[in-house]
Structures are given as C-alpha cells and as structure tokens.
Computed example of a mutant assay.
Amino acid sequence: MNLFDLKGKKAVITGGIHGLGMAMAEGLAQAGAELIITNNTLEPLETAIEYYKNKGYKATGYVFDVTDEVEAEKQVTAMETAHGQIDILVNNAGIIMRVMAIDMKVEDFRKVIDVDLVGVFIMSKLIAKGMIARKAGKIINICSMMSELGRDNVSAYASAKGGLKMLTRSLATEWARHNVQVNGIGPGYFATSQTEPIRVDGHPFNEFIISRTPAGRWGDPEDLAGTAVFLASDASNFVNGQVIYVDGGILATIGKPSNE
C-alpha cells in the first residue's frame, strides 16, 4: 500500500494538541510522517509532544499564534531550517464562541473569523511557497458541518467555516498546476472531551445527534485518521478542492431512517 505511505514526510498540524487534531496527527504518524505541532500556548503543547514521543512518534512543537503573520513567518522559516521541506499542512487550529448573533460582540465575531479563516490563509500562504517551488504538497483544511449548515448561536463559526470551504476551493484552483492539492475534512459530531458533558444518556443534544445520524452514534476521533492519511498521501494526487465530510451520513439525509 505504498500509495498511503508517508515515511520521510514532514507534517505540520496547527493546534494538534488534543481531540480531533491529535487523532489526525496520530494517523499521519502511524503512516510514517514526522509531526510538527503548533499551538499558541506552551504548556499544553509540551504535554502533547510528550504524549506523541511516548507513543514512539517523532514530534516537535512550536509556540506561536497563527493569526500573527510576522511571527508565523518566523516560525515557518525556523521549521524549514530545522526539518527541511514541509510536505503536509493540516490547518486544524480553531475556536468557537456559542453566542446568539443578536448578543455577539463584533470584536468576538472578528476573533473567530481571524483564527478559523485568516489564520488558515496565513499558514497556507507561507508553507505553500516551498511546496510550489518543489512542485509537490498537501494542504488539508479542517472544515465543519457548519461549512454547509447553519445553526443558532454559532454565526461567527459557521461564517468562518463556510468561508474556509471556499478558500479551500480557491487555493486548490490557484495551486493545482504546481502539483499542490488543497482539500478539506468536515467532521461531524465526535466523542471528545469537549462533547463529553452532552453525550450522557438522556441529554437532549445527545439524543438529537444519535437520532439525526444514520450511523446512530457519535464519531470516534480515530474515524478521522484514515481520511487525513488519504488526503496527505499520493492516493489523493488527483483530488483537489474537495471537502470530505466524515459525519456518519448526516449530510446525506433529512433524518435517520427508521428500523423498518
């Protein structure tokens, strides 16, 4: 299965310190990639790097804010100096603020857009320069169900993720001729530490997700690993500008089918 072999590849995963980001990073590492993990604070990054190393993966961490173009450029230069070419970029760093639109401060709206969309543009632009020069590279943007669907109290997040879908298509269009593939992954609802409080039996949202998902369950973080490896590998060399939704079938249906 050489198509999926990532041995010798260097993969940058922004915000790859827990949850879905960590699951995708582990998938890439299991396929042979060296991990370069970023975060905007040191302590959780150190904890994540220790975890990766204890699992036997080669991993290094860099602390910076992806929305700070000047600092991001310095850190990307440092990465390329220390590790050589960057073959894979996973734009995973993001935030969400659950506030009704009528109550949301404009400064908070802008902050979500800045992290979830502008930060992706900054990192993609910086790392794509080397990929374009080498005529090879894989960029994976972490989109969302909210790239397609609206929901109350996440107007900023949905706006950012909808924009990220279109940024993915635009960058793919610009860079395809340089053999750089830019695609997205749109996770559905996953069982992580963040969703644990609402996944208990009897919780209305837990019941809603299970009843709305044809698979009848929350996703396991490991369910994202295969898609990440596919989009990072030679297996996806002619896949470009696509968002693959890993959602248990939610977007395919208006409701979970009956048992009949």
Rank of each mutant, 00 (worst) to 15 (best):
F205D: 06
I244H: 10
K125L: 10
I102Q: 15
E207M: 01
L149F: 12
I185W: 10
K256Q: 08
I49M: 01
R169E: 14
Y51E: 03
R151S: 13
T47D: 05
E69L: 05
V112W: 06
D116H: 04
E50S: 05
I88E: 15
K111D: 02
N91M: 12
N92G: 03
K105F: 15
I49Y: 00
M22I: 05
N92P: 06
K111E: 03
L171Y: 14
G19S: 11
M146F: 15
K58S: 14
S258A: 11
A235I: 07
A232T: 10
I49P: 01
E69P: 07
D65H: 03
S155R: 08
G150P: 11
T14L: 13
F238R: 09
V12A: 09
V120C: 11
K256T: 01
G202Q: 05
I140H: 10
S124I: 03
R177W: 02
F4M: 10
L149M: 14
L164K: 01
G249V: 01
F238Y: 15
T192D: 00
G16H: 13
V115N: 15
I254N: 14
G21Q: 09
A232S: 14
T227G: 05
T192I: 03
D114M: 12
K105G: 15
G162E: 02
R177V: 07
G94K: 07
N259A: 02
L20P: 06
F64T: 07
F208L: 00
D201P: 02
F109P: 04
G248T: 03
E260F: 12
M131C: 12
V106G: 09
V243R: 06
E148D: 11
G202K: 05
A133L: 13
N54V: 00
S211W: 03
Y51F: 07
S233F: 10
T253Q: 04
G163I: 06
K74L: 07
K53S: 07
V182S: 09
T173F: 14
E207Y: 00
A191F: 00
H83C: 06
D116L: 09
A225P: 04
M97Q: 14
K111I: 09
R98S: 13
T192P: 00
Q30D: 12
A191Q: 08
S147R: 01
R177Y: 00
M104I: 15
F230G: 01
L164M: 09
A136I: 05
S236P: 07
T14E: 07
D103N: 14
